[in-house]
Design a protein around this nucleic acid. Structure first.
Lengths: 276, 276
DNA sequence: TTAATAGTGTCTTTGAGACATTATACT
DNA sequence: AGTATAATGTCTCAAAGACACTATTAA
């Protein structure tokens, strides 16, 4: 149906004032007379800790799904509060704010992108809720979770997670987020979002190995990364020491200016992914 | 902020009943006391007609943006209407329905995927509106638009379109949709969604040339398509006649069973796309 | 001294692209 | 006949991957 027709035809969004000027149009809506739709923003925040891909989860303190773990998120603030305060906020800003409030201001994701929206009827038992999911990459924090607005938030290894323990359809959202991360490593330099600068080529390779879940050939990976224009750029310095079990000191790099990798770092195609 | 906290802390979604059981929780919301957020679904429907990439647009009959062209779309139906009717509908179903109602039931997109959500404050002057955009591919229809629910709907060449004539932020949504289509042709067999079966390799090449906007080498393209497992499969038959200006009759193919192209059909990298 | 690691060298295979060639069918 | 097109062949170059090798550092 056309938006302009739906307003008058089915009464969902009723036009009280029938004059076609904009003023009357704006005043004519009375959506409060009908069942509302809520919009939330949920965040799949990924990091690498202890050589594992981990996701930030918060424990729900109230029903529904009380006691279950869930993705951090919250309702989108409407444009006007009951007290008249204007709080205009973009969806991405909402995602960043939710993340900071859940995990503490110290969690500054180095990458944040929209993942997709989830709006199946019944995904929230209370009402129709459309959730706009965001995907965040953060470098691994050596310390534990900093002081946080949410008492019960923690990083959880994705592999050691029973999907059935997640609230709502968050298991599906998480799976989509991990899929997105895996494929984005192929043709974007986003692996650098998981490490802190400066970093070594080996650290970068460990990002790929952790997210993809497979060992890569160190020598070939090294040469390949350096051959992609703009992926990384040298800092000119080395690590202070060699590895914990020996080996020469590694050269240090920072992020390059490329937005796409060309040629890409393709993972070997799995037959199962190519065919249904 | 955590979802469970936001409900009590800032009063956006007020809990009237403080007992923590689910029943009380469900009854406790009173979102009608606050400014609502509306959710719409808009569709970027692309096809190829007259060797041009075209998008389906509808003319708005009412303000805002009265007289402007817009993407087909409409409000998402809440789970319960005022008369008590339950209308449970998925977001993708909503997109398909909007498309059918705008362009007539004959428009059956051969591909429909979610493109992204657009929720910047002020993108709709009436109220806060979150739009979930979908991307649809349809084979070119030789006839004009069939009898339709919307009187003023038409296919428009994307290139000959002044973005300023589009309502809301639909120019940005359209640009994102075209970008997505261009890159999806590289690593998925979705070019076949723009043609009707059976098709020739030349028809498939014309899809790539039209969407990418550049000529491809016919011979190399031919060999490449046939070398990708599962992209197309032969029907064993030929076209009835040769081309309008001569040439042998072409073999006919149908879609294969691949979901990803391996190896992919990469377009030559533009330097401007790799660097900022 | 032993072992592990960073980084480089070499070879093979695959694939992309430029270009040529053959066969077919329309005007 | 002349021309356009479908389909295939050939050659070159780039890149991925397997493997080897050297240099450097920690235990």
């Amino acid at each position: 149906m056309r938006r302009t027709n739906s307003e008058t035809q089915n009464g969902w969004w009723r036009r009280v004032d029938s004059t076609p000027d904009t003023e009357g149009f704006l005043a004519g809506y009375d959506p409060r007379a009908y069942d509302p739709i809520a919009v939330t923003v949920d965040v799949v925040a990924l990091t690498i800790r202890d050589a594992q891909l981990q996701v930030l989860l918060v424990r729900r303190g109230e029903p529904p799904f009380q006691g279950s773990w869930a993705l951090p998120g919250g309702f989108v603030r409407p444009s006007q509060a009951p007290d008249g305060t204007k709080t205009e906020e973009d969806l991405a800003q909402t995602a960043a704010r939710e993340l900071a409030e859940e995990a503490g201001a110290s969690l500054r994701p180095s990458h944040l992108e929209q993942l997709g929206s989830y709006g199946a009827p019944g995904r929230d038992p209370r009402m129709r809720v459309i959730s706009v999911a965001y995907l965040a990459f953060a470098p691994g924090l050596p310390e534990a979770m900093p002081g946080s607005d949410a008492a019960d938030a923690r990083w959880t290894p994705v592999n050691a997670l029973d999907p059935r323990t997640l609230a709502f359809d968050h298991a599906a959202i998480l799976a989509d987020g991990v899929d997105r991360a895996r494929s984005k490593l192929e043709y974007t330099p986003l692996a650098t979002a998981f490490v802190t600068e400066p970093f070594t080529i080996t650290e970068l390779r460990e990002v790929y190995e952790t997210v993809w879940g497979e060992k890569l050939h160190a020598g070939n990976f090294h040469r390949k990364v350096l051959s992609v224009p703009g992926f990384v750029e040298s800092t000119g310095s080395h690590t202070e020491t060699g590895g914990p079990r020996g080996g020469p000191r590694a050269k240090l790099y920072r992020r390059g200016d490329a937005t796409l990798l060309h040629p890409a770092l393709l993972r070997p195609a799995t037959e199962a992914e190519l065919r249904p």
